[in-house]
């Protein structure tokens, strides 16, 4: 991500340090991860210590300090999905992709994340790929669509 793109995002918030979280969020959305160099740039431009930026970047699940795959798989481990077999689903997806939660496969195709409740409890256990619920489909079929 280049400086101009970062500047563009920071300028949207008039460079105000109190919007640090929103700024990191937009960078994450655009770049899909937060490279250390980018975090340093943000810290300098907002005049917020690098420590504070790191604190926030490591606290929230949404942020990633390592590159993410092209398609993010998100498996809900909330209690509604738990009682409907989320753990079985997770195991199946792990076997299919060969990666564990927090990892990205070697060709950068998929990242696997677990998290909880997107409020779609009636479809549980819920798997999202690229933000889309994969409903009424086996994990294998769903993954095939994104290969």
């Amino acid at each position: 991500m280049d400086n101009a793109a970062i500047d563009h995002i920071i300028n949207k918030y008039q460079g105000q340090a109190r919007f640090l979280i929103q700024i990191l969020m937009e960078i994450q959305e655009e770049n899909r991860w937060l490279p250390r160099e980018v975090l340093k740039t943000v810290s300098e431009k907002l005049d917020v210590s690098f420590r504070q930026v790191m604190r926030i970047a490591t606290m929230y699940k949404t942020f990633s300090l390592v590159p993410k795959g092209h398609n993010e798989i998100h498996i809900c481990m909330g209690n509604a999905c738990h009682v409907r077999g989320a753990e079985r689903l997770l195991k199946e997806v792990q076997e299919l992709t060969g990666i564990k939660p927090g990892e990205t496969d070697s060709d950068g195709k998929f990242s696997l994340e677990i998290g909880c409740c997107r409020g779609n409890c009636c479809s549980g256990p819920v798997m999202e790929i690229g933000g889309k619920t994969q409903d009424k489909m086996s994990p294998a079929e769903a993954l095939k669509n994104y290969e």
């Binding site: 979280i21 926030i56 606290m59 949404t62 942020f63 998290g115």
Partner: peptide, 25 residues
Amino acid sequence: VHFDIGIFVSGESSALMRSIEGKAP
């Protein structure tokens, strides 16, 4: 408009307010 971006504790009132200030929740 401000956002929770994925941590349960930020629903706690004082943590939520730190988050609105741009700090760790």
